[in-house]
Nucleic acid binder design. Structure first.
Lengths: 154, 154
DNA sequence: TCCAGACTGAGACTCAATCTCGGGTAGGCT
DNA sequence: AGCCTACCCGAGATTGAGTCTCAGTCTGGA
């Protein structure tokens, strides 16, 4: 997600919060700014707590509260780790993606695939259910022999 | 999974453990039996601990050790809960399935879809990664078409 | 039978996440 | 501007899943 889009997300977050009747506060604002800056890839709640503590704001409770609020407003997605750690990323309003987890390094890379979305839609139809959300998580290892492997960049 | 198949899984587990050089022990056997009996749908680790404690065997440490061993041998799958709770189910040797979670009732339904598997395979190929596992979790509501049910998508 | 090494279980420990509550602050009202 | 109420914040206590440790027990081959 580009910087421009991050700006847009920040504005969106601001608006939604205000519309939902929330006031502004230093801690939540700090969380939102951090997410806009670095939340394009998954950030663990603990990461966020750590970053903000460095900056001298926020406490665990506050960060979790802020993230829960953002999640309720649909501004962030929660990605469940295999290790009992909650991870968050900003919800891209014009895009939907899934995750590949490298089993060796624990790194998480996003990807999207149109056909995958289509098939999931048809599966839901076949099952006769109304879909509200769906997660696809692939686990494995990046193939070093493939130059296009998603490991080249952070 | 049927009772017959549960028998088969039990035998398979027995064989794989022996082949891998494990000895038999009361606690692990109890975990395996419980999984064969009730593990066709997801069981949380805590559930298992509780059941076995009722029966007077096993401790938390032992149960987690046993489940880890079974997971390493590919005998069970781990399903990550949204709540930081590890859930397990027996790995059906002749079938791979995913889960639909009813958001209203919390019920979990397994399903399988051949095309979904195929698309996931091709996505992995496109990404240039070696796939070790993959989870697909659909969330939504069963469609008995309740008027007034939450209707958003994605 | 003997014995090395694997298995077990109670309890301490770690750490993410939540709860509590006193104090601070935003922002509407006069 | 000053006040006041309701919301926001943060330190610390608490919960609870999962892991670690270690001494005692048991399996299974020699």
């Amino acid at each position: 997600m580009s910087g421009v889009s991050a700006e847009r997300w920040l504005a969106l977050a601001d608006r939604r919060l205000r519309e939902a009747g929330y006031r502004s506060g230093s801690a939540r604002s700090a969380v939102i700014e951090l997410m806009a800056r670095e939340g394009h890839c998954v950030l663990s709640a603990q990461d966020i707590v750590g970053r903000l503590r460095q900056a001298g704001v926020g406490s665990a409770a506050t960060v979790y509260r802020a993230l829960e609020t953002l999640h309720e407003l649909g501004l962030v997605h929660r990605v469940d780790g295999r290790d009992g750690v909650a991870r968050y990323e900003i919800a891209d309003p014009d895009g939907h993606h899934h995750h590949f987890v490298d089993e060796r390094t624990g790194e998480v890379w996003p990807f999207e695939d149109e056909e995958l979305e289509r098939v999931i839609g048809s599966v839901a139809e076949r099952l006769g259910v109304r879909l509200l959300a769906h997660d696809v998580t692939l686990r494995g290892t990046a193939r070093e022999d493939t130059p296009g492997a998603p490991g080249a960049t952070t």
